[in-house]
Design a protein around this nucleic acid. Structure first.
Lengths: 340, 340
DNA sequence: TCCATTATGGCAAACGTTTGCCAAATCTGT
DNA sequence: ACAGATTTGGCAAACGTTTGCCATAATGGA
C-alpha cells in the first residue's frame, strides 16, 4: 500500500481532493456536494447518500482556508501569553481550551516572550486568521490594543483598558491578604521584589502594596525590577537580604522560588531569618523548599471566562470580570525574627 | 477619538481595508497594489511610493486567508504536544519557535491532552490550515499518521515510524545510564513505575530497562501503568514501596516528583530507604525535595531540529535524528540500604 | 386532469488575493 | 526619427468554498 494515485498536484502539491472532484465523481454540481455535506436537509436523501458515499470514498476533507475566505470566519481563536513556560498560564490555557472546544472552535496558542515586538508580530500574522484574540498580560501600548480591537474581538487578561472587555485577577485583594498575613506574623519591614515595569499587573501590585502598607503602619520598599524568572529571583534574593527587610514579597512565584533557592544556597533560614511570599501558586510552589506561601487565583476559570466573553460578542458594553483570590499559606512565611 | 468611519461592514463585519480599497484610492489596478507591496521591483518607484503611502494611510493589512487560498500556503506550522502543562515540552516549544521565527513562519500550538481523539480532532481542524506539523509523542495509530503525512509534511518527536521523519531522544542510553548509576550504588532490585501503555516512549524505556537489567544481573519489575502526572506518582509511590525494590525508576519527572512528595509525606527517607529517578529534567526537578536524579535531554535542540526537518522538505528519504542524553545526578539517589 | 405548492439541483457570483499574459508606454542605440 | 528592447500597469483567471437565485421536477389537493 504505497501512496495511491498521485492526485493532480496543483500548484502547491498539497491540496487533496476538492469539492470539484467529488462532484465530478458523483455526477452532480459542486453546490450540491457542498450542501449535501453541510446542509443535509437541503438535498434529497438519495442524492445526499450518494454524494456522501463518494466523498467518503475519495477521502474528501474540506479546505478550511477556502471556507474561511467566503465566510470570513476561521473558527479559530488565538491565545497569546507572555511566557508559555510559566506554569501560571496553564490553568488559563486549559480553561480556554475547554470552552473553545465546547463552542467548536480551535484554539491556537502563541508565546510572546513578554516582548511587545514579538507580540505585535504575532498579532500581525494571526490577526487576519483568527476570529478573536485572548491577550494575557499584554505589554502593548493602549493605542495598539484599541486599534487591534477595531479589527478583531479582543479580550484582555490582567490588563485593564477602558473600552475593552477583560478578566482580571483581584491583585489588590491578593496583596492585601499577603500583607495582613505578614503583619499578623509581626513583620514591620517589607521589601517588594518587583517585576517588569511595563507590566500592568506590576503597577497594580505595587500600588496595592503601598496603599496597604501605609494603612497597616509598616514600611515597604520596592526593589528591582527583576526578571520574573528563577534567575531573576536569585538576583532579587541578594537585594532583598541587603535591604534589611524581614519579609520579601515577590512579584510572582517564579521569582519567589528563585529567591528561595538562592537563600537556601546561602544558608539563610526561611522563614527563620526572612519570610518569602509569591503570587500565582504555580506548579512547583507546593514542592519547592520550603513550600511557598503564595496567592492562588482561579486561572482555569479565568480561561473559561475569557473565551466566553470573546464569543459572547454581542456585548452591550465591554464586560469586566474580577476573579477572587486566596492566600495559600505554606512554610515560607513565619514570625518575624525577634531583633529589629 | 472614538472608532473612525465605520468601514463597509462586509458580510463578516471584520475585514478592514482591502486591496480594492487601496487601488481605488490610489487610482490604480488591484494587481498594481498587490505588486507594489509584495514585489516592489516590479513597479516604478513613483507608483510604488504612492501606493505604499495610500496603503499605509488607509491602514491596509493583507488578508492572509485570501493569500493562502491562492498560494496554498499559510506560512503557519503546527506543534501538537500531549500535555502543554508538562514542563518537559517547554524546551521543544521554545526551540521550535526560534526556528519558525527565523524562517518567518508562525507557530501555532495545540494541546492534545494525550487523547488520540483530541489529537485527531486537532489535526482535522488544523490539517488544512498549516503548512506542516510537528507531532510530539503522538498517540495516533501508525495508519493515521501515514495518511496524515500524505496530505501534509509531518515530523514526529519521540515516536518512530518507518517512512516518516523524526527526532527522538536516546531513551535507551538514558535508561542505560540510569541503571548503571543505580547498580554502581549497589541497588539490585529495581522497580519501574510505568507510564501510558500506548506511548511509544513507554515501550522503549521498558525494553531498554529489561535489556540492561539482565545484562547487569539485577532484577527489575514493571509496576503500573500510572498516569504521568504528580497524582499518578503518588499512587506509584505506594506500589513502589510495597514492591520491596530499593530503587524506583519513574516513567518521567512529573511522576517521579509525585513519588517524592508522597514518600516525604509518609516519612520515608529518600534516598535512605529508597532511591528515585526520573526522566526529562523538567522545571522543578532541581528544586523539589530532595532534588531529583533524572535524565536530561536537549529539548530546545529537539524543537529546532524538528522545525528544520519540517521545512527542509526536499528530503531524499525521511530524516531520523537521535539526540543524546545525560544523567543528571542529584540527591534523590544514594547507596542501596545495607539490608537484603 | 390541472393548478399551485414545495422539493431539488444547478448556475454563477462572491470572498481577497496572486499571477500569467498582453498592450501601452517609455527608453535605447543608431 | 525610427525600430527594437524594456519597463510599466491592467485584465482576467484562478484558488476552493458558500450561497442567492432560478428552473425544473415532484407532489398535493381539488
Amino acid at each position: 500500500m504505497t501512496s495511491p494515485t498521485p492526485r493532480s498536484p496543483g500548484r502547491a502539491g498539497l491540496q487533496n481532493v476538492t469539492l470539484h472532484d467529488v462532484a465530478r465523481e458523483a455526477g452532480v454540481a459542486v453546490s450540491t456536494v457542498s450542501r449535501a455535506l453541510t446542509q443535509p436537509d437541503r438535498i434529497s436523501p438519495a442524492t445526499r447518500a450518494r454524494v456522501q458515499e463518494v466523498a467518503r470514498r475519495l477521502g474528501y476533507r474540506p479546505n478550511r482556508i477556502a471556507r474561511a475566505v467566503v465566510s470570513g470566519r476561521t473558527q479559530m481563536l488565538a491565545v497569546l501569553v507572555p511566557d508559555i513556560t510559566n506554569p501560571h498560564h496553564f490553568g488559563l490555557i486549559r480553561g480556554a481550551e475547554e470552552r473553545a472546544r465546547a463552542a467548536d472552535r480551535t484554539l491556537v496558542l502563541g508565546d510572546t516572550r513578554g516582548d511587545p515586538g514579538l507580540e505585535a508580530d504575532h498579532l500581525d500574522r494571526l490577526g487576519s486568521v483568527v476570529d478573536g484574540i485572548v491577550l494575557a498580560s499584554s505589554r502593548l501600548p493602549d493605542a495598539d490594543l484599541l486599534e487591534l480591537a477595531r479589527r478583531r474581538p479582543v479580550v484582555l487578561h490582567n490588563r485593564e483598558l477602558p473600552g475593552l472587555p477583560g478578566v482580571v485577577t483581584d491583585f489588590d485583594d491578593g496583596i492585601r491578604q499577603t500583607l495582613a498575613h505578614l503583619v499578623a506574623l509581626g513583620h514591620r519591614r517589607v521589601a517588594y521584589l518587583s517585576g517588569p515595569r511595563r507590566s500592568w499587573s506590576e503597577g497594580r501590585r505595587w500600588a496595592a502594596l503601598t496603599a496597604g502598607a501605609t494603612q497597616a503602619g509598616v514600611t515597604v520598599q520596592r526593589l528591582g525590577p527583576f526578571a520574573p524568572t528563577l534567575d531573576g529571583g536569585r538576583a532579587a534574593a541578594d537585594a532583598g537580604l541587603a535591604s534589611g527587610a524581614t519579609a520579601l514579597v515577590g512579584y510572582n512565584d517564579l521569582l519567589a522560588i528563585g529567591v528561595l533557592r538562592r537563600l537556601e544556597e546561602c544558608g539563610v533560614p526561611v522563614p527563620g531569618t526572612v519570610s518569602v511570599t509569591g503570587f500565582d501558586d504555580i506548579f512547583g510552589a507546593d514542592f519547592c523548599h520550603p513550600p511557598l506561601t503564595t496567592v492562588t487565583a482561579p486561572t482555569e476559570e479565568a480561561g473559561r471566562a475569557l473565551v466566553d466573553v470573546l464569543l459572547d460578542d454581542r456585548s452591550p458594553d465591554p464586560e469586566r470580570i474580577v476573579l477572587p483570590v486566596r492566600l495559600q499559606v505554606r512554610q515560607s512565611t513565619g514570625p518575624a525574627p525577634p531583633t529589629s
